[in-house]
Each structure stands twice: as C-alpha cells, then as structure tokens.
Design a binder for these strands. Structure first.
Lengths: 214, 214
DNA sequence: GTACATTTCAAACACTTGTTTAAATATACC
DNA sequence: GGTATATTTAAACAAGTGTTTGAAATGTAC
C-alpha cells in the first residue's frame, strides 16, 4: 500500500517539475520515470495514459485552489458594496500563494503548468477545466463586469483574455524573466513579487477607457 | 530555375500555415511536404534542416517589418516632442497590417508565428531575433521609457514583458477567440480589430500607476 | 546533342515516442 | 503458510520523427 502511493507520488512530483520546465508535449514519459526512479510502464499502470497523468498533475493544485476561489467570489458577489477591480483581482493572491503549502515552489509550478496548458495545444485540458470549474469562472467574470459597468460584455471578454495571456506568458517564462531582472536591475523578485506587480498592470488594462474613434 | 523557386515557395507557404496553426515542434516535415506537394527530402535539400526552415519562414516577414519599424522609431526619437505612449504603440499598426501585402492573411500568420516562437521552446529563435533585430528593439524600449518618465526602468522591463505575453497569447489563440466572440457576442472581428483593441489595453497597463504599498 | 549541374524522388537510416505484454516480485488476507 | 491480488519489471511493439543516400530525372549551357 505504501509503495503504491509512493510510486504515484514520485511520478506526480517528477512530472509536474518537468512539465513546468519544458511543457507537456516536449516531456517524455521516459524522462519522467527516469527522474522519478520508477519503471516506465508504471505511468500507464497507475494513471492509464499520458493525458490522464497531465490532468492528475493539474488536479492536485486545482482541487485545492478552485474551491477557495469560488468561496471568495461568492462572498464578494453577496456583499452589496461596489467591488473595486483591484480588490477583485487581489482575491487571487492569497489562495495562489497558499499553493506553496502543497509543496516547495508550489505556486510557481502551478502557474507555469497553467501556462503550459494554454500554450501547448492540449485540447483535453480546456475541456477538463471548463467541465470541472466553469461555474467558478462565471462568477469571476460577473464580478469583473460589475466592477466595470461602463464596459460592454464583449470588451470585457477580450480584455480578460488579454490578461490571461499576460499571466500565462509571464509564468511560462518566469525563470528567464527573473534571471534577466537580477542581471540587469540587481532585482531579486520572487513569485509573490511578480504577482503583486501584475495586479496594477492588469487592473489598469482591463479598466482602460474605450477607444473613442476607430 | 523557376522550379527551384517554386518548390522553395511552396514549402515556405505550407510551412508557415502549419507552423502558425499547430506550432513548430508539433508540425512534422511530412505534413509540410505533403501539403506543399513536394518530396520529403526537398526541405533538407533547399533549407538544410527544420531549424533553418523555421528561421526562413519568420525571416520572410521580419525582413520586411523590422526595417520599417526601425525607421519609425528613429523618426520618433529624433523629434523633440514628448511622445505619448499610445502614439508609440500605434507605430506598429500600419507596418503590421502591410504584411497582408506579402500574402493573404500575412499579418495574422506572422503574429501567430511570433507567438509560437515564444511558446514553443525554440532557443535558436530567440538568438536569431536578438542577433538580427536587437538594435531596433532597444530603440523601442527607449521610446517607452521617454513616454513614461515616472516609471523606473525595471518596472518598464516587467510591464513590456507582460505586454509581450498579451500579444503573443492573443495571437496564438486568435482563431479560437474570434470564434468565441462570433458565437457569444455576434461580433465579427478581424485582425486589425484585435490590434486596435489591444492598443488602449496595453497603453493603460504599461502606464499604470505604481503600487504605493507592498 | 553531348556534357555538366541542379533538382527530384523513393527508400532506408537511426532514433524517439506512448503503449502493451507477460513474467517476476511484493503485498495482503484467510 | 498458501493463495489471490497488486505492483514492478524488462522487453517488445507499432508508429512517428528528422535526416541521408544514391540513382533517376530534369534543366542549362556550349
């Protein structure tokens, strides 16, 4: 019994590290099993396929993060105050940083995985996410709409996707950006620093005034 | 002589289409040569390797775009007026849209390829771009710094990378976003519409006020 | 029209991929 | 302890990858 959990755990740990570093498609099962020091066939034995392994790796974080976010969104929606956009976005900070409790560098790893999920073309991931967490996402979109009553829904749609791009790309290239910042500006930036830098940028972008003339 | 150019052209056309759709790594030479209706070996004969084919595909657009951008940047830097950030960013619009003259949907294809270049881990592309067009990029960064004198250089560094993420991600998922916008909001958005939507978002994000308290 | 260079082509190369198989081993339960 | 179940293992599988080969075909020039 302990050996089974051990093997699954070892595979998940190695997989998430390699997936975050080099993407899902570019990471082979042989790399994973070799880093986890388990037999190649054990991935298919325990998870069924590579696809299901990818989903399991993400699910470890999503099952913790999404209920917390859902709770926060529900709370904000229930309060009768006007919710400032900066406040709505700040809701993400603490739940994201608490992923570090799952394991070392959990927040960074999860956000990198999220980025890979969008840049790798893994159709099954989009379905997987919408199927499990679509409701939570809807609440968030509603909150943003309430905090930006001047913007039409379609404009918010576009700007939220622009923002998703910012997050995903930043996290996917997070390591490189940190290195450059350290070399060029003598700045040591950790993941929470990046997240807090992102908030004002995203808030300003999402709430930007509409262009008047085409 | 004509057949040689014909084959090269056919390969480039098919390659850029497939690369834009599914990324560099995920596109095989057999897919390319089959769509181009040429022999598999002709890629290696005409371009040497897959890497060099990728570079050739990008170079077809970059060699047209970058000198134009460089010229615009130089002009703006020479003028003694203060350059509004929106104005600086708008410099991209016309040169980008003129890529449509290279070929049908040239702008979209190029921007998607750019996105792929960052999301696929193609180290040689980053080197290739910096080596050929690093100088032009420096001029752009200088212009942004001049238009946002209140922001420290390190903050501008981060925000420009946030913006790069927005662009790259938006273009990589451009087709999907267009479809959703059409289905959910009855909106038909072409590439120039996306570009013009991006400008105010990016301008507001880059010029956002600094966060006062940590 | 012969001689030379360029280009095309089918076939094979060496290698990597995810997955499956069947035997060997470990674990749990009676 | 013996039996059944769960897990690990090495090996092979079929399919796909970029690249190379050498001969055939085509084009060019004198």
């Amino acid at each position: 019994m302990t050996s089974k959990q051990n093997t699954q755990q070892k595979i998940l740990d190695a997989a998430e590290k390699l997936f975050a570093e080099t993407g899902f498609s570019a990471t082979s099962l042989r790399q994973i099993t070799s880093m986890a020091e388990v037999n190649l066939a054990s991935v298919n034995y325990h998870f069924g396929s590579k696809k299901e392994l990818i989903q399991a790796v993400l699910q470890r974080y999503l099952s913790l993060l999404m209920p917390r976010l859902d709770q926060e969104f529900t709370q904000l929606l229930a309060s009768q105050h006007h919710n400032d956009l900066g406040k709505v976005l700040s809701v993400f900070v603490i739940p994201l940083l608490e992923l570090n409790k799952v394991q070392n560098r959990g927040t960074t790893l999860f956000l990198q995985l999220l980025g890979r999920g969008y840049t790798d073309v893994q159709g099954h991931l989009r379905w997987f996410f919408n199927h499990h967490y679509g409701r939570t996402l809807d609440k968030f979109v509603l909150l943003v709409q309430q905090s930006c009553p001047a913007l039409p829904a379609s404009e918010i749609f576009w700007r939220l996707h622009f923002s998703l791009g910012t997050i995903v790309f930043t996290m996917a290239s997070n390591e490189a950006l940190k290195d450059i910042a350290a070399a060029d500006f003598n700045e040591i930036v950790e993941i929470d620093g990046v997240i807090k830098r992102l908030i004002p940028y995203l808030a300003a972008g999402i709430a930007a005034p509409m262009q008047t003339a085409g």
